[in-house]
Structure formats: structure tokens, C-alpha cells
Amino acid sequence: MKRNSYSWDAVLMAASFFLLAGALYLVFMWVPTSATSLEGIAQRIFYFHVPLWWVAFLAYAVTFISSLVYLARRGASWDNLACSAAEIGTVFVTLGLITGIIWAKPAWSVWWTWDPRLTTALVLWFIYIGYFLVRAYAPAAQARNFAAVISIIGTVDSFIVFMAIRWWRTQHPSPVVGTGGGLAPEMLFTFMVSLAAFTLLFVLLMRLRTTLRATQEQVTALRQAEE
């Protein structure tokens, strides 16, 4: 069974490697820069930026649901799932924010704007920083409960943040993401490849991280039994 799970990891690793490499080729060599975009070459960030956000969203959704299940059932594996997804989600949110900032400068001519999506992401990022700090600073008996509670509060809060910022910002003119409407077929294809690559990468990272954490806990338990 163990061997089987390793070979799955190998398959996943190979698949996400080739898909990511393919996506890189498509993005930089193959797909034409969108003719309608004002930001020029920077438009290609879109192929990484959006999949990054998709994975971040997916990861935080996993954290939220696992946290709920953890509080209901208290399985250490649910906590493992929640925390691993939170870590990966936060890495992707950070990358999403960075790619967003790089894109925003040529597109909106500012690095940062208090757009609802950006601001919500930033607030959520801060909440998850708190999530990790609490896990580190809380006594072991309580850390998991605390983390689950913060994830639940944070997820609910992000909806209210989004609503509040939207109302706040609609009172001022603000730049709008201009990628709406139809995508050219090449663009759509490139986007889909990239999306698949990042999603596979997420699944792979989740598997590796949860296995690692489970092993860590086993080691701690064994070391304690040794004593």
C-alpha cells in the first residue's frame, strides 16, 4: 500500500512537471499577446496569476471544510489536512499577490489598489499569518482547536470584507480587471494547460505535506515511547 502511494506521487510529480514545463512553453513561446490589452507583454502574467488564485481559493476551501470536520470529529488527520492546505494556500496567495502587483503596474500604472479582490486577499493573508502564529504559540493540547476556529472566523470574515470593500470602492472610480469577455482559442488553451498544471501541483504538494506531517507526528510519538 505504501509503495502504491509513492508511485502515485511519482506519477503526479511527472505529470505536474511536464504540464508546468508545457505551460511555460505555451505562455512564453506560443500564445500571442492579447491584442486588446493595454499592458502589453505583462498580460501573460494572467496565465500564472489566475491559476495561482484558483489554487489558493481551493486550498483555503479545503482548510475551512477540514476545520469544520475537525471540530465535529477531532481526527488528527483532518487537522493535518487543514493545516497543510493552509500552508500551501498561503504560499499561493503570496505568489498571487506578487504576480498581481507586477501586473498592476503596467496595467493600472499603480502597484497596489484597494480593489475588493486584492484587499480581501490581503486580509485573508493576514488572518492566516495569525493562524500559523497561533499554531506555534498555543499549547499543544489547544493549538488544533484554535487553528480551526480562526479558519472558520477568517473564511466567514472574508465574505464580509469583500462586500464592505466593494461598497467602499464603488464610491470612487477604480480600475477594473479588463479580461472579461471571450478569450482567443490559443489563450484559452494556454490558460487551461496552466490551470491543470497548477491544480496537479496543488494535489501533489498536499499529498507530500500531509504525509510529511503525519510522519513527523509518528516520529514524535515513537520518540516519546522510547523514553
Binding site: 493576514f126 497561533v134 489547544q142 470574515d157
Partner: peptide, 20 residues
């Protein structure tokens, strides 16, 4: 109150959540 560094933890948790 149940964490170490509790004086720092409260603002870190509280402030982002009350943004809206």
C-alpha cells in the same frame, strides 16, 4: 489568553478580522 505572547496574538488576530 491561552497562548504564549498573548499581548501580541490578540491584535494580530483581531485587527484583520474587524477590517470590514
Amino acid at each position: 489568553a491561552n497562548t504564549r505572547a498573548r499581548d501580541v496574538m490578540l491584535p494580530i488576530l483581531f485587527l484583520p478580522v474587524v477590517v470590514p
